[in-house]
């Protein structure tokens, strides 16, 4: 069953998802996972928030991945997010120059996470957004959502996804501006104010 015969398309069926579990912490997070923006880049934004369960309790063991375009809307193609040190086997981190567009952040003991990345540019007909993938113990299949930045009301109003949602739900996808360049985005897995999660077809 686990040798897939690619000559028989009917046998090429998806491998089921499983929870990331509680013990990924020594494997998946890496140094600088949250510092996605090249050092000192003027278009850097900080996004941060909490991941909350159905009782409003913070998740101290959620893992967030962010993926977004550069400020011109281009898809990053650089590798090197988790550069390694061939001598010690440890992490060197990013080189602070190239933009890989991808980051990975574990929530802290308070259920809080943050990332510094480049302000995403618009692509296609969408308003600018960062794609988000959420993993956690208890989550048997990861969840996708999006962080839209609130600055361009016209673009948000024309966005094909946002314009399909009723106001209360739509607002869960739009980050709240705080200080200049800092945005708050909480992820509520369940219950009141539940974040809109996406399924790609």
């Amino acid at each position: 069953m686990t040798k897939i015969d690619t000559g028989r398309p009917e046998s090429v069926l998806p491998t089921p998802s499983h929870t990331v579990g509680p013990f990924y912490g020594h494997a998946l997070p890496f140094r600088g996972g949250e510092d996605i923006a090249p050092l000192g880049h003027p278009d850097t934004v900080t996004v941060h928030g909490y991941v909350l369960d159905g009782e409003g309790g913070p998740l101290p063991d959620a893992l967030i991945e962010l993926w977004g375009p550069d400020p011109d809307g281009n898809v990053p193609t650089a590798d090197g997010s988790m550069r390694r040190d061939p001598a010690s086997g440890g992490f060197l981190g990013r080189n602070g120059v190239e933009f890989t567009g991808w980051g990975r952040i574990q929530t802290d003991a308070n259920g809080h996470w943050y990332a510094r990345t480049l302000r995403p540019g618009a692509r296609g007909r969408s308003a600018p957004y960062l794609s988000v993938c959420v993993f956690a113990r208890g989550l048997l299949v990861h969840l996708y959502t999006r962080i839209y930045l609130p600055d361009d009301a016209e673009a948000l109003a024309a966005d094909p996804l946002l314009s399909r949602l009723e106001d209360g739900r739509r607002d869960t996808l739009v980050a709240v501006a705080e200080d200049s360049g800092t945005y708050r985005f909480d992820i509520r897995l369940q219950g009141e104010g539940e974040t809109v999660f996406l399924e790609f077809q």
């Binding site: 995403p120 296609g124 007909r125 969408s126 794609s131 956690a136 208890g138 897995l189 539940e194 399924e199």
Partner: peptide, 25 residues
């Protein structure tokens, strides 16, 4: 049991990717 408070109750919103090849996803 860990799934009980950590799964969304709302159905996911479907995105038809064939409508927009530019999606960063």
């Amino acid at each position: 049991r860990s799934s009980v408070l950590r799964h969304p109750k709302q159905p996911p919103v479907a995105i038809d990717v064939s409508q927009d090849p530019e999606l960063v996803e």
